[in-house]
Simulated scan of single mutants.
Amino acid sequence: MTAVLDKGQGREIPDHVVRAVSEGTTRARTRRRRTTAFVRACQVASVVILLAGWEWVVRAGIMRELFVSRPSAVVDYIVEERSMLISNTVATFYAATLGFVIGSFAGLVLGIVLERWRTVGRIFDPWVTFLASLPRIALAPLFLLWFGITLQAKVVLAVSVVFFVVLVGTQAGMKSSDPDLIRAVRLLGGNARFELTKAILPGALPSIFGALRLGVIFSILGVVASEMIASREGLGQLIVRSSQELRPEGVFAMLIILGIAGTLINSILLAIENRTLKWKTS
């Protein structure tokens, strides 16, 4: 008795083979779910152990609370100062979002242009290398001088960091595109636009998404660095203030907020990347 037709070979596949394949797929899916659950449990356990150990080390007097605070003190600080933390977190991530969007869009477009038109790329490559080599954090005082203690200064610093990360990632991705696929498109009569959108960019997507995920992190770092130098609001200036007031619980509270928010944003981008690149594994 047969139930499935193998169209590639023009013959029918026996039922027991179909059942074996289906059972193997089900077992593999079950193993993946169990592995994921195990990994999540280990991650949660590691966080609990770290926090418990931190609390115990301070309470036992092994380390001074003045220098490292305690998890319970950090939680108390977050609860007591929640309204201030919320407003400053919004200010920081609003600037980081603007910097990321503008910098990633500009880096993506220019990366495509410089890599697609090689002559133009060769002309501007020394400039890109020179500017990308500059420590952007060192430019923060200049941006503050030019734009003042404003939102624009923070956004410009974030843009200057994200732009080159995405630019270089886009160029590297386009260089690694499958040459056989590009030749196939040309042989089939595809124009330059079709070649770019159907052969080059799809192959460059993994590198582009990797650059975007790095761009999120660097955008946050750029904004916080600018706020630590001079700012009216934001988590960066709260970190400086807490350090000056000898309140390590405040510093750790800001670091935890930044870490959690950055992880969530990175997870969202990773989910978008996996969904977009699902065709590569299907």
Rank of each mutant, 00 (worst) to 15 (best):
I200V: 15
S104N: 06
V156C: 05
L110Y: 00
I217Q: 03
G61I: 07
A204S: 06
R122D: 11
Q152T: 14
E12N: 11
L51M: 14
I229K: 04
G234C: 08
A28V: 13
A41S: 09
V39H: 02
F124Q: 10
I149L: 10
T92K: 00
F147V: 07
I256N: 06
L157P: 08
V166I: 12
V168W: 01
R232F: 07
I217M: 01
P141N: 09
E23A: 12
F194Q: 12
R136F: 13
R64W: 08
W127E: 07
S176R: 09
V168S: 02
S83N: 06
L151F: 15
A45G: 07
L258R: 00
Y94E: 11
A140W: 04
V223C: 01
F209G: 02
G148R: 10
A20E: 11
A37W: 06
W54D: 01
T150M: 11
L269A: 03
A20F: 08
V251F: 10
A20L: 09
E12T: 11
R82T: 07
L145F: 15
R118V: 10
S83C: 01
D76R: 15
L255Q: 12
R34W: 12
F252L: 14
A52M: 08
I123H: 05
L151P: 00
V216I: 13
R11L: 12
F143N: 07
L196H: 08
T26I: 15
F163G: 02
L51A: 11
R34A: 08
A106K: 00
A271I: 14
L167W: 02
V120M: 09
R70M: 08
S69V: 02
L151Y: 13
V44P: 04
F100V: 11
T150W: 09
E80T: 12
R29I: 05
A41Q: 05
V44L: 10
I272C: 03
F209S: 04
T26S: 13
P126D: 05
W117Y: 15
G262I: 11
S69Y: 11
P126Y: 05
E80P: 01
V224H: 06
G203P: 09
G215P: 03
A271V: 13
A45M: 08
G236W: 08
T281S: 13
S219D: 03
A95H: 08
C42Y: 07
G259H: 14
V21L: 11
W279F: 09
V17P: 05
